[in-house]
């Protein structure tokens, strides 16, 4: 068995820009949003792999591609040695039990008219794993383990009757019911209150050990990622610009974008105040991404080649990959 639970190769997702019927007849040229534009990475068994970037970087689309909630335009995703593209609907459905997802907004992802216990146990019924009393027992067990205690009290409540942090626990419990291998967590704590966030992060780590999980942790918050991820990939406009262990990326960032992103994170310490060197402007439109390196129009170190040729992701030290022509070690 390989070390990798997930292998992503040359993954692309272009969304066509919606146009009217007549316009499609008149203009031949079709426009696409280059949401994910050719990325490669691996997620190892048992690790927390972070995917970080600003809005529009393609991180969320990548997560959905891995779950096969959207079909890739190009490239392949291999899950535990199986190429997802080769699977039929029924096989994919069975494989889905092994990959679960947690979304940002726990409220939106819970059916408001379903009791908490039933929502958590729903997948057991869908996949005909357990019903009736057995289902109830399993759900109660899981609720205890994610800290929804007393479980019997919460079982018959509805989502609106509990707090935001508890809702996120419900979503966690639901994701874990079928004992998945991979959990894709898309900004799982962004909506939670500050004082609850640390608690949820800790719970996620604890459950990871307990259930032998692998996480794909998608986030815009590098400070949070630092507390949970083992390895991390930084995305910008559909491409990975830097990837490596947490230590490598945070201590020795080599891509100017990573450096800027790290410098921009507000630090909860007034002594750390200083004027920052920030890139100009904002993330451009992913319909017509800039040629060459996508970051070059905003990059303080851009040279002539950057506007012509897109740099490929190359290994600068074992396990640390950077896509930059200049590479200014911080």
């Amino acid at each position: 068995m390989s070390d990798n639970l997930v292998e992503v190769r040359g993954l692309k997702k272009w969304f066509p820009v919606q146009k009217g019927f007549i316009e499609r007849l008149v203009t031949r040229e079709r426009q696409f949003v280059h949401a994910v534009d050719g990325i490669d990475f691996q997620i190892r068994h048992g690790e927390v792999f972070g995917l970080a970037g600003e809005s529009g970087s393609g991180k969320t689309t990548t997560g959905r591609l891995i779950l096969r909630l959207v079909e890739p335009t190009e490239g392949s995703i291999v899950f535990d040695g199986v190429n997802l593209a080769s699977l039929g609907d029924e096989e994919m459905r069975r494989l889905r039990q092994r990959m679960q997802v947690i979304f940002q907004d726990p409220f939106a992802s819970l059916n408001p008219r379903m009791k908490i216990g039933d929502a958590i146990g729903h997948s057991l019924e869908i996949f005909k794993v357990a019903t009736g009393e057995e289902k109830r027992q399993r759900v109660l067990d899981m609720m205890e383990r994610v800290g929804l205690t007393p479980a019997r009290f919460f079982y018959d409540k509805y989502p609106h009757q509990v707090s935001g942090g508890q809702r996120q626990r419900i979503v966690l419990a639901r994701a874990l019911m079928l004992h998945p291998d991979l959990v894709v967590a898309d900004e799982p704590i962004a909506m939670a209150d500050v004082s609850v966030r640390a608690l949820l992060l800790d719970l996620m780590l604890q459950l990871k050990e307990e259930f032998n999980l692998t996480y794909l942790f998608i986030t815009h918050d590098l400070a949070t990622a630092k507390y949970i991820c083992d390895r991390i990939a930084i995305m910008y406009l559909g491409l990975i610009c830097e990837m490596g262990t947490l230590e490598q990326v945070y201590r020795h960032p080599q891509h100017p974008y990573t450096q800027a992103l790290l410098a921009a994170v507000p630090v909860p310490d007034p002594h750390a105040r200083r004027v920052k060197r920030l890139p100009k402007g904002e993330i451009p439109n992913p319909i017509n991404p800039p040629p060459g390196c996508r970051f070059h129009p905003r990059c303080p170190h851009a040279t002539a080649i950057c506007s012509v040729e897109g740099p490929s992701l190359t290994e600068v030290e074992p396990g640390h990959l950077v896509a930059c022509h200049t590479r200014f070690p911080a």
Binding site: V194, A198, L199, K226, Y227, L262, V267, P268, D269
Partner: peptide, 15 residues
Amino acid sequence: SVPNIRLTDDDLEIM
């Protein structure tokens, strides 16, 4: 309980 990107200490205090 606030994650600090600059700190090396990995332990968040949990409320």
